[in-house]
Design a binder for these strands. Sequence first.
RNA 1: CGGGGUGUGGCGCAGCUUGGUAGCGCGCUUGCUUUGGGAGCAAGAUGUCGUAGGUUCAAAUCCUAUCACCCCGACCA
Length: 578
Amino acid sequence: MLWSKTYIPTLRESPADAELISHKMLMRGGYIRKLQAGVYNYLPLMQRVLHKTINIVREEMDRSGAIEITMPVLHPAELWQESGRWHVMGKEQMRMKDRHNHDMVLGGTHEEVVTNVIRGELRSYRQLPLNLYQIQVKFRDEIRPRFGLMRGREFLMKDAYTFDTDLETHKVAYNKMVDAYFATFNRCGLAVRKVESDTGAMGGSMAHEFMVIVDTDSGEEVIYFCNKCDYAANVEKAESIDPKKIASETAKPLEKVPTPGAATIEQVTEFLKVPAERLVKTLLYLADGKPVAALIRGDRQINETKLRNHFGCLELVMATADVVEKVTKAPVGFAGPIGLKDIRIVADPEVMALTNFVVGANENETHYINVNLKRDFDVKEVATIRNAQVGDICSHCKEGTLSAQKGIEVGNTFNLGLKYSKALNAKFIDAEGKEQLFWMGSYGIGVTRTIQATVEKYNDEKGIIWPATMAPYQVELVPLTLQDDKLRAASFELYDQLNRAGVEVLMDDRDERAGVKFNDADLIGIPLRVNVGSKSLEKGEIELKERAKPEVGAVKQESAVETIKQTIARQIAKPQPF
RNA sequence: CGGGGUGUGGCGCAGCUUGGUAGCGCGCUUGCUUUGGGAGCAAGAUGUCGUAGGUUCAAAUCCUAUCACCCCGACCA
């Protein structure tokens, strides 16, 4: 392709609304343009990267035995009502009405539709296992779309769905997908970490996320991993070991003390000269509208996902001040479990291990000190509802400590169990002639997000450095000038030779100065650049410059095509640029 | 939705406090020179100053409303 014949609108400056380096580079390199928040045009270079990435994903899915289909983007609301997710998805689901005033959904995921595809028709266990996948645009009305393609409202995704006869065969299918994911991301030059995650609105009992670990602030999610064993989980899921009961001190008598002006943990620790881990926070929430209380140590952060799972509610929101006052009969900041009646109270195991601790007294500017469980109050529900923290002991090996890193989630896998087959009544006949529900799994790869994650990972101050497997072109051919007839002729000849040799080549045939072309070449990040300049041409040579390497090499014109092909082959074999 | 911020040629920005009819850099067009890491000179084109009201002789500038976009938070197959 000739640069002059395609459309590569590079920018010297970053648009003001781009924050992440990857977002800036994709904008500056003329890869993407925003249409509205979270919705992007994919320009010619991006389109080619997209094709490359899709091909990798497709090849690995096919290799794993998954079968490609295409399902509609437009779904009838009835299907979502049938599964019960019409209400679960809430505002995140893009919805519209047709001319008959029927509710429609722009799909953000396809569990319902894929189940509808097979139900009633896939009737025999002999047709199982089955894995159906598609690569398709998805819509999600994100609360806050951001960071370019990282969190879009419209984005490209590969979604696969497995159907199996039982849990054992489901696990086989699940692990095949896990293997396919590692293979896929490897080919993209991305080292990914598989971490445990919460199942969220997907239901089911097991889930993993595939994370690209990044040093920058671009990681949207914090993941915790053990320094001794291979345990890794995201912040929603990560668990640390529960403490043994602290060598029990003698219970001191309960005492109610005034704490004027001390409503926050910091103020109370300061005022009472008690460390935060001796305080118990009483946090009030509305679980599907009903007030509930959660007790965690003062030095800990509540994990609302864990809390929501414990209460089994759809909606969990912090109670407003007036609810707090109504329930505790005290202003915000003085809630405590003693005397708190008629609401469910859940305590973190760490709280259960405390003695002589401090709680709010449900009275303005008052706390209880020397509180002890059983004697002063009792809780019926105990569940881990705190966030893990760096330095905590790993809950798996019980030896290592947890560290944290930021990551970009590029893929995920979910065991869905029987949730959707049950809700949508999808059954097959087993070997005994009995009707059974399908065991299902769902598996996503954010294709457009993976592309941006790759840019976020592989760039320098000059621009993008693509892994050869994803690069829009394999080679960028740069004639240093077009004014010199010999040089021009040699460039076009090489361009033709490369095309005939099946090399994906972009030639910068613009009548620009060399510096402009070099800078644009570095910006768009094609892994191999070939310079045709008069100095080397006099020696019968052309120059090779790999984007990821500083040095410039020279080869004889005659062997140029061969050397270029070898270089490309080497780059593709090891796609990680550095 | 809460908090913060920004909307002025394609991109980046100034002008707004103190109203007087829009400017800079890059890019774009044409010509000449130049040509190995973002050239120089000259001549040009491109703006209903986000939108709608209002105040005023006069509004990019003041007031009101509204929309869009960005950041933090909440949320997130």
